[in-house]
Design a binder for these strands. Structure first.
Length: 325
DNA sequence: TATCCGTGGAT
DNA sequence: TATCCAAGGAT
């Protein structure tokens, strides 16, 4: 979860994930859609799929025992150099150096190297960074050292406005926090529209059964590159939405694109006519929808429309006012 | 090797 | 409001 995702965000979702999948075997045996559902809103869903596959591999081929060595951990799907080193050093005390985005920035500033401003040469610089990380590593307490390096980058040697006056390495640092980072592509904006179609249905076979509300959802095809297999509100072909049918507008940033999503109230009868062709489309009870692999945008809309309750972890965090590790 | 994959919090 | 970018990995 911590791959490219902030600690504060993960802290909310981590406990929920462990409650749902308390053991490696329970994760391995779960349907992929259930894993994605618990991951819903965290993004980078490939991480969830690979974690699932890793659990299955360990369960099937390694007798359920997760490797302890970094070199063996690296063989599992979704575990690269960073995660392997982090687990091996922190959990098992192996003397391997962690290089994450924070460490890379810290070391480049200390050594006076310029990171990635030129295309190419990235691999050579990367090797120098890893070599320096290995050389500096406290081999007696590798886990603590690695966490300290990452924490230094996260709290003091920050990308912008580094707190050099509070830095224990100020005297050793070549750059005192000056550090050119490569220019990023500018953000773009896109206006899109989705159908929010809700109907009330009665349980079949019951004369006066309890009615329940259902929402129309669509599953993204398995072939798409973005969020395959996830469920979302049906996309509309046209972004123009009459004011009377505009339920809400949601901004949803994905990578470098700001999506301004217009949510259109759609009556049941019209839904089929105006939705774009996609994957499977299903009427789903609100209760069921809350536990499905929804995209972040869809989850956000359903919560804001008071159709599904806020996920428990979010509600708790909001009550406390802050995420708690 | 450059690119792609999601999201939300900080600034 | 707009921009940046995070405890990366696979392809």
């Amino acid at each position: 979860m911590l791959q490219q995702t902030r600690v504060a965000v993960v802290a909310e979702r981590y406990q929920e994930f462990l409650r749902r999948f308390p053991t490696l075997v329970s994760l391995a045996l779960a349907p992929e859609q259930d894993v994605l559902a618990v991951w819903s809103g965290l993004g980078y869903y490939r991480r969830a799929r690979m974690l699932h596959k890793a659990a299955q591999f360990v369960s099937t081929n390694l007798g359920g025992n997760l490797p302890a060595k970094a070199e063996e951990l690296k063989l599992l799907p979704g575990i690269g150099a960073y995660t392997a080193a982090a687990v091996a050093s922190i959990a098992h005390g192996e003397a391997v150096a962690v290089v994450d985005g924070n460490v890379e920035r810290v070391l480049c500033r200390i050594a006076g190297w310029e990171a990635g401003s030129r295309k190419g040469g990235g691999a050579a610089l990367r090797r120098k960074i890893e070599e320096l990380a290995r050389r500096l590593l406290d081999r007696a307490r590798p886990g603590d050292w690695n966490q300290a390096m990452m924490e230094l980058g996260a709290t003091v040697c920050t990308p912008r406005n580094p707190q050099c006056m509070a830095c224990p390495l100020m005297k050793e640092c070549k750059t005192r926090g000056e550090h050119k980072t490569p220019r990023r592509a500018p953000m773009t904006s896109r206006v899109v529209a989705y159908a929010l179609s809700v109907r009330t249905s009665t349980a079949p076979g019951k004369r006066r059964g309890p009615s329940m509300r259902e929402v129309l959802l669509e599953q993204r095809p398995a072939e798409v590159t973005v969020m395959p297999g996830m469920w979302e509100l049906p996309a509309l072909l046209h972004s123009e939405v009459p004011a009377t049918e505009l339920r809400m507008t949601v901004r949803h940033a994905i990578m470098q694109v700001n999506y301004y999503a217009r949510i259109r109230t759609v009556f049941e009868d019209d839904a089929a006519a105006i939705t774009a062709a996609g994957g499977e489309r299903r009427w789903v009870s609100l209760r069921e929808a809350a536990g499905m692999a929804l995209t972040g945008l869809t989850r956000k809309v359903l919560v804001r429309a008071h159709l599904v309750a806020m996920p428990a972890a979010e509600a708790i965090a909001r009550r406390r006012g802050r995420a708690v590790v």
